[in-house]
Write a protein that binds this DNA or RNA. Sequence first.
DNA 1: GTCTATACCCGGATAGAC
DNA 2: GTCTATCCGGGTATAGAC
Lengths: 199, 199
Amino acid sequence: MAARRTTPGAEDRPLSFIEQTRRTQLIEVTIRLVAEHGYAAASLARIAQAAGITKGAVLYHFASKDAVVAAAHARVLDALVADVGAAVEAAPADQAPAAYVRRMVGHLAERPDHARLIVEAMLHHGRPAPEARWKPLAALLQNAREARGLDPGPDPRTLALITGGAIDAIVGERLRDAAYDAGAAAESLIEMLEAAAFG
Amino acid sequence: MAARRTTPGAEDRPLSFIEQTRRTQLIEVTIRLVAEHGYAAASLARIAQAAGITKGAVLYHFASKDAVVAAAHARVLDALVADVGAAVEAAPADQAPAAYVRRMVGHLAERPDHARLIVEAMLHHGRPAPEARWKPLAALLQNAREARGLDPGPDPRTLALITGGAIDAIVGERLRDAAYDAGAAAESLIEMLEAAAFG
DNA sequence: GTCTATACCCGGATAGAC
DNA sequence: GTCTATCCGGGTATAGAC
């Protein structure tokens, strides 16, 4: 009998080629389903149907339904942090916050399906380290302030929180109205943020 | 036989006293359930159990499960717009945006259960007129600008959108960390907003 | 008019065929 | 090692008792 099911903890052993393929296929299908019809549509039956196999087959490759969506979630998050991380590291410290906002909005606006998945995952998968959301940007703001030789101004946590929420709203609007200029909105946000952070 | 079930469109005929009572009881129970255990916990069985009656009894008073949560949603939204609306009307035009932000954050911070329900409803009940979210604040910003005799600055829609998202983030953080000072955060946000809007 | 008991369906998971 | 056929629980909605 089974493979993944019997080894719930140890996911790190080599994967057969066909399994590798199926897994990525299932992940992609799941991302598409959630993006198009919302989180609730991501039932085992629909995932299986969309992939052309049966429910049980899906559960052979993943330990549970939650594992499938968690994998999909992880995939899009990885892509996001890789992209934004690279952009931030390529920028000088005093411009890192701007780079962060710019790339974050850009990345999500370019990938509506990823954006939807992330939004949905926020609410359903509850709270896996909520501070992970604002801590990185808060750190960037702190550094940028030092790079510019400024005294500590307003609470970085609040600044980062506000900015994160604003990014969500901009991306969300872009999702609903494809004609909305998310790039311009991001620049407005950056101006507001820099004015508040660097006086 | 039944009452509500057979008259899906016409909800406006007089309600018996006992029905009135049950309805409000069920709405309150639903708000509590969603607030404490998330949207998924609001099943007919749990609502019924929490109210001390059976599932069928709930469906006597409401046409469907969705109708129950929609009613709960409507109740908290009404409370919100009444409160914020009053605060805005009591303020002079050039300070209306600040009043809006202040009361919005205040209202939601004071009612964590309402806040959670609204957040959850956003995602699940999909998109019922998404512009309803930013239009009111955008109008206030426009008016305030005229009251101060300023030229049209940055796009009010974007400004309103950013502010709305920031409010969500502040309230959300307050929900997770009761020690977080949402009032102070609101003042920071107001400063940023006024700087951007009124230069 | 109000509520209970019950049917039905859909979603997730398991046992076992190939 | 891969997948199909089947089961079981919990969900919503209905038929009918009081």
